[in-house]
């Protein structure tokens, strides 16, 4: 099979290049992955904040399955840069004592559990008295 004129050969090569571009170089979607084999921590419950004296605040909560939880993080909701949550502190027990330099009354706080697989779970929120 021969192409007799240069123009026709160029046209055929362009066509062939197009076919190759379509069939060879295209990305494809294959192998949908299995869900990650990580343990999600339970969401803390009964999260309450008390104010025993001055600027001291007690944070208490419950957890349904403490055996898969290695710690907790407490956040001031909306207190971070760009409106994000600001990390107040970390603890390994379901209680946290914090002293603030000023009153935090009516501010919202959140607590999240961290699983033994390093996944930080859903937040429970409470408003400081």
């Amino acid at each position: 099979m021969r192409f007799h004129s240069p123009r026709r050969s160029v046209l055929a090569l362009v066509l062939l290049a197009g076919v190759l571009a379509v069939t060879v170089g295209c990305p494809s979607h294959e192998d949908f992955p299995q869900p990650l084999d990580v343990t999600y921590p339970p969401k803390p419950t009964s999260f309450v904040i008390t104010n025993p004296q001055n600027f001291d605040y007690d944070f208490n909560w419950s957890i349904s399955n403490p055996s898969i939880v290695k710690g907790y993080r407490i956040y001031l909701v909306g207190g971070g840069a760009l409106g994000g949550d600001e990390l107040i502190g970390e603890t390994t027990s379901p209680t946290f004592l914090a002293t603030f330099p000023l009153s935090v009354a009516n501010l919202t706080f959140a607590v999240r559990a961290i699983s033994t697989d390093n996944v930080e779970g859903l937040a429970a929120v409470a408003v400081a008295p």
């Binding site: 990580v38 697989d117 390093n118 996944v119 930080e120």
Partner: peptide, 17 residues
Amino acid sequence: YLSYADLTAGGQVVLQE
């Protein structure tokens, strides 16, 4: 998505959300 497995295995905490 798959990188989360490497991050958590390396000790970095990743949000469930």
